[in-house]
Design a protein around this nucleic acid. Structure first.
Lengths: 142, 142
DNA sequence: TTACAATTTAGAGTCGACTTGAAGTCAAGC
DNA sequence: GCTTGACTTCAAGTCGACTCTAAATTGTAA
């Protein structure tokens, strides 16, 4: 049983961020102390660490919310739940990851093109400053 | 001599955006009609089109402001200014582009890594849903 | 002449993902 | 009993890049 500060330290997030994630529905903590203070389990920490992993994959909090809609799958397996029962959850997650992967690969293509265009522009300015001022070059420079 | 609306049409920006760019100092238009309305030249349009090109390269408005600090180089060449006098301007621009290119290539490396990690995660969920639940796999799944 | 379109300005609103501030509650130590 | 520190909530502020609103002014056509 951990406090918000301990979870923040373990995950590299701040308590502010953890509360914010709960507010927008990415995390849904149910347990509270009598005082109202949040109580976290080791499962929660694992889930939050996975969340951080997904963030590093460039997923938005909206995508991540959808990804974790049905909570911590590993916890359910450990509690003896049959994997066949979890198949829909797992399928949804692979679907989200697949879709995200496609977006990433599209982004890479765009980035490759941008890099090509930047190099092209660089060549133009280089040529101009070396006085090789062909019309073709000058026409595209401002 | 063009109006803001005409320039917006030619460049694909909106009049709002053009005024905004002027407000934050990316563009510095000096000419005005007696009524106070902005007046744009063909040179201005070329510069704004180049600005849009730099945006497509992923440059921030801050970087672009610095890039265009000394206005329209082509215009100066057309007005007969010696290229040797423009060398500092051109060098500054190639420097900015080179720095930007380095950032882009770093971004591509990061993206490649993210794609690799996403594929890895995808494999883990796939294996789990196919019931090949090795400990190594389960340990990294939530 | 009056209506309408296009422009101007300052300032506010939008997005996502936090980040912080203010004010209040609660448990532990002196 | 009182202070300190950690927690709570709600609301507001931040960032970059727009996007829009409102109110005023100018230019043009019927």
């Amino acid at each position: 049983m951990l406090t918000i500060k301990q979870v923040a330290e373990r995950t590299g997030l701040t308590p502010y961020t953890l509360r914010y994630y709960e507010k927008i529905g990415v995390l849904k903590m149910q347990q509270r102390k009598d005082s109202g203070a949040r109580v976290y389990t080791e499962s929660d920490v694992k889930l939050i660490q996975c969340l951080c992993g997904l963030k590093k994959l460039g997923m938005s909090l909206e995508e991540i919310t959808e990804f974790f809609r049905d909570g911590c799958v590993l916890e359910k397996i450990e509690q003896g739940e049959d994997i066949s029962k979890l198949t829909p959850s797992l399928k949804r997650r692979t679907d989200i990851l697949t879709k995200h992967l496609q977006e990433l690969e599209k982004k890479r293509e765009e980035l490759d093109n941008i890099i090509f265009l930047t190099k092209e522009k660089l060549v133009m300015y280089d040529e101009l400053s070396q006085n090789k001022q062909s019309f073709a070059t000058r026409a595209r420079i401002v």
